[in-house]
């Protein structure tokens, strides 16, 4: 990449917008995933009986089963959210930045 293109991209307000949006969404979702998983690990370590309690009185299924399935689903849903946003809005913005830089 030559200096000229670099300067053009860096000074483009759309680039700043892209960087801001993409990084903040990336970090927000990462923190969400880490909080979900390590929250689960901490409950597991310090209060395992919470997860071992029956889901409803008289039931064999414990609270831990739907929680576990939900964590697996949350991983899928979070990636879906990011991909939708990035492949739509962010890529559109990115295309504009690249075009403007090559003019």
């Amino acid at each position: 990449m030559n200096e000229d293109v670099l300067k053009k991209v860096q000074s483009n307000p759309k680039f700043k917008e892209l960087v801001h949006k993409k990084t903040s969404l990336g970090w927000q979702l990462s923190i969400a995933m880490l909080a979900i998983y390590y929250g689960f690990i901490l409950i597991l370590a310090f209060s395992p009986s919470t997860l071992g309690a029956p889901l409803a009185p008289g039931m064999t299924m414990t609270v831990g089963i739907p929680v576990g399935i939900l964590i697996i689903l949350s991983a899928f849903v979070l990636t879906g959210l990011y991909v939708r946003k990035a492949n739509g809005e962010f890529d559109q913005l990115n295309r504009e930045i690249v075009e403007e830089a090559q003019q």
Partner: peptide, 10 residues
Amino acid sequence: LVGWPVILFL
């Protein structure tokens, strides 16, 4: 599994 979303985001 939970490493994958983080790989995607970052």
